[in-house]
Design a protein around this nucleic acid. Structure first.
Lengths: 163, 163
DNA sequence: GTCCATGCAAACCTTTTGCACTATA
DNA sequence: TATAGTGCAAAAGGTTTGCATGGAC
């Protein structure tokens, strides 16, 4: 459980490059984070740190996550849940899109060259310099549908007239 | 400034359908909101209400926005700014994607049938029942680039190795 | 008259910040 | 030993909630 992952080594190098100290806390966050996978909330990470016997203040955790994001080893997501999630960027495709279940929160990832195409086309057309994008499709996953979950539909019931 | 928009009438109908009272505050929020356009924050809406001489508590505003979203006349967005934005859904294309400038916050909208295709394909493949999606491309708009703005790049400088 | 909405303030939640103290290099 | 990080607690910022009052139907 304590071996050093490639990502962790890259993070060390990043810190060194930036002239920042490589502290016990930063090591522990990196170690725990990079040995997990998925889209972790700050709470998730805190729990894993505690479970690993590490006691780290949340301010430090937030500050370390900021560094991880800046190093580009980690991506920050906001799925509109009221808090952020963090994802290890290595050991997976460099670009991917998300299917998100509104019932159970499961995230399915997929790649799409079509989206890359659209992005290239549309940014060229608008003289826009793109840095990143996200495509997120929300709905019900197969399992939640099978259990009989339905999404409430409370909206106006007739076709919407155009203003 | 006080004429009744089609959307406002639809909102009234929605309230009636749901057996909810059509109060002065709800009317005013709808009137102000539907006579604006763009992606409004709660602060934006509050300001417009104040400018129109309406004094409405923010709790009521939030509660009314919830109703507007439920009625499907309004869409809620989260562009990761730390707060939500609300958009009038009528008088525009029913589906659209966003280009968002990280410098000035400008939002350019576009449509893409390719994205619709991808969505249909991928959800079919995973047995997913889609309700909505978002495609957001972040970057620098033409104007901000022309003024010389650049995005910081602080990340690791060599190609990222795969774990 | 019965519900439900309103407004205020307090509570909530996540995230950020100030500051005295501690650790890294 | 100088410089930057840590931890705590408080603050911040957006959003939600409890509750007494007021308004819609």
């Amino acid at each position: 459980m304590n071996e050093t992952s490639p990502s962790q080594r890259l993070f060390r190098r990043y810190l060194k490059d930036q002239g920042l100290p490589c502290t016990r806390q930063r090591e522990q966050v990196a170690q725990v984070f990079f040995s997990s996978s998925g889209h972790l909330s700050v709470e998730d990470i805190q729990r894993r740190l505690r479970d690993g016997g590490h006691r780290i203040g949340k301010a430090t955790l937030y500050r370390t996550l900021e560094l991880l994001v800046r190093s580009r080893l980690v991506v920050e997501h906001d799925f509109g849940e009221g808090f952020k999630r963090y994802e290890h960027r290595l050991s997976r495709e460099p670009v991917h899109e998300h299917l998100i279940c509104l019932e159970c929160g499961k995230v399915i990832e997929f790649e799409s060259w079509e989206v890359q195409d659209v992005k290239a086309q549309i940014t060229r057309k608008h003289g826009f310099q793109p840095t990143r994008h996200r495509l997120e499709i929300y709905g019900l996953c197969r399992e939640c549908q099978e259990v009989g979950v339905e999404l409430p539909n409370d909206g106006l019931t007739c076709p919407i007239e155009r203003a």
